[in-house]
């Protein structure tokens, strides 16, 4: 079987399109590359969706935590503490069993137990909490002069937030937020090894990598392939965030711009 044929058969296997049976023996390098790459679709889906939705929720949470009003501050603080203080792995398990018991209450909650929604909710809350802490830190370090200048121009409330506070907050938070995005993509590999079932063997890249490792007793091929894909994904994330970073910093002289520095990744 030629490699093109394999890509046609298994390229979209993670979505359930193409050949139904996974290869069982005589695994070729092409098969491993294709299937693990196909699983990357899920990693990108989880990471991207959680990031986009999480961005807005994180902003709200950060504002809540910085609020002088207790009724807004306390819930935000607790939310951030719970999701940052416990392992994501346990959160996945807990959420899965929670959704499982909710499912028996109502048929409308049926899809909560499947990974595409249930795991996405957990990742969304998790990245919101981590990003909110970053945004909160940035809110605290907005230069006093900028807010005073905004006051002097007669800006207040929503206008002041939109034109002065928010852009500066993003600019200050962006290097740390880039790292958060990278860790989030790495964290998506936890989905299928914690509780959430892979329906009809449609899993993410780690799911297929461990499938090959378990079948061949040889970890030295599938895991480096997985690593290669993730290094590629990381580079894409860094360059995409770098473009945004350049735009956020465009009004500053070159030597005062904040550089994005990749820090070693950390488990949640």
């Amino acid at each position: 079987m030629s490699c093109i044929q394999t890509i046609q058969d298994y390229g979209l296997r993670a979505l359930g399109i193409g050949e139904r049976l996974l290869p069982r023996e005589d695994f070729t390098l092409c098969e491993q590359f294709t299937l693990i790459g196909s699983g990357m679709i899920w990693n990108v889906y989880f990471g991207l969706t959680a990031l986009v939705f999480g961005f807005f929720f994180a902003t709200a949470l950060a504002l809540g935590k910085a609020s002088p009003r207790k009724i807004l501050r306390k819930p935000s603080e607790w939310f951030i503490f719970v999701f940052r203080g416990s392992p994501l792995f346990i959160q996945f398990f807990f959420a899965y069993f929670l959704f499982l018991s909710l499912k028996s209450q109502s048929i409308y909650l049926d899809s909560l137990t499947s990974a595409w929604l249930g795991a996405l909710i957990v990742l969304f809350f998790n990245t919101s909490a981590y990003s909110a802490e970053i945004f909160y830190g940035a809110l605290q370090s907005i230069p006093k002069g900028e807010v005073e200048a905004a006051d002097a121009y007669g800006l207040s409330g929503w206008k002041r937030f939109k034109r002065v506070v928010w852009p500066t907050m993003l600019r200050l938070a962006w290097p740390a937020y880039t790292n958060e995005a990278i860790f989030l993509f790495h964290a998506t590999t936890l989905v299928y090894i914690s509780g959430f079932p892979a329906f009809q063997q449609r899993g993410d890249s780690l799911y297929y990598a461990s499938y090959f490792a378990a079948k061949t007793f040889n970890p030295f091929i599938p895991y480096p392939i997985l690593a290669g894909y993730f290094i590629l994904l990381t580079l894409i994330v860094i360059s995409a965030y770098g473009l945004v970073n350049r735009r956020l910093n465009r009004h500053l002289p070159a030597d005062r711009r904040q550089k994005i520095r990749l820090r070693p990744n950390l488990i949640r």
């Binding site: 790495h186 490792a213 007793f217 970890p219 030295f220 895991y223 997985l226 990749l262 070693p264 990744n265």
Partner: peptide, 23 residues
């Protein structure tokens, strides 16, 4: 050694090392 942990999910390391060390 320091650089290799960058850019790769840690869970992959865990799954990899346990089999690799054993073998």
């Amino acid at each position: 050694y320091i650089a290799i942990v960058r850019g790769v999910p840690d869970i992959a390391f865990f799954l990899f090392f346990v089999i690799a060390l054993d073998q």
